[in-house]
Design a binder for these strands. Structure first.
Length: 208
DNA sequence: GTATGGATGTTCT
DNA sequence: GAACATCCATACT
């Protein structure tokens, strides 16, 4: 599929690593695509965080509830929830069906549909369109209505890979740090980011 | 660039 | 009633 000059194809579930940390790392450099009636949006993933089942910060840690049920779907489904009453968070379920783990997408580099993103965000500053999990959800019109969709099958929201993108981004280009904004599990280094990207959400000290 | 404080509403105790 | 996987404006270096 051609999107604003980029050749992007949908990822298959079988391509997704079966382990949460591996998936969080794998997703760096992949693409989030959102099809709206007004047009198609796309962004390259530059920052993720892993939330494993045995981690107190993972919403699935307390067991299945109405809110977190999508985390228990097979890997590759969207888990969308509202944080602090104002910001939607987009996660990808990351474990086997029934297990309960996910990867939070924290920041995107906009590559298609920038005008639509700017309208939704109320700013023309490209750097601020999708830098942060709440911002990217606002730019991409992501809310509870997309909770539970299969990101390897859905037409409205899916994960893709650009033609020509490396199979595996070299280790030297990916940084690892503690996660952002947590009290539980604050010491765990479960955040992955594309080194040198201008579109990272964290404070400078965590982006080296 | 960093630091701080308030707004916000859903979820679970 | 507390706890939040945040954002924005503001002040400051």
């Amino acid at each position: 599929m051609k999107i604003a000059g980029h050749d992007i194809r949908k990822l298959r579930r079988s391509e997704l690593p079966e382990e949460t940390m591996a998936l969080a790392r794998f997703m760096i450099g992949k693409v989030v695509v959102r099809a709206l009636p007004e047009g198609v949006l796309a962004g390259r993933i530059v920052e993720t965080e892993a939330y494993m089942a045995d981690d107190a910060a993972c919403h699935a840690h307390i067991g299945m509830t109405p809110r977190n049920r999508a985390l228990f779907l097979a890997r590759g489904h969207a888990y969308v929830y509202l944080a602090y009453g104002t910001a939607w968070m987009l996660n990808v379920s990351s474990a086997a069906k029934g297990e309960g783990a996910g990867v939070l997408i924290r920041a995107l580099e906009p590559i298609a549909g920038l005008d639509l993103m700017a309208l939704r965000r109320g700013t023309g500053n490209v750097r601020d369109l999708a830098r942060g999990p709440g911002r990217l959800a606002q730019a991409f019109a992501i809310d509870r209505s997309l909770d539970g969709v299969d990101l390897t099958r859905d037409r409205r929201l899916w994960l893709g890979r650009e033609a020509g993108a490396p199979e595996r981004i070299s280790q030297a280009k990916i940084g690892i740090s503690t996660r952002i904004g947590l009290t539980k599990g604050a010491h765990l280094e479960h955040r992955f980011y594309l080194k040198g990207s201008r579109f990272l959400s964290g404070p400078g000290a965590l982006n080296r």
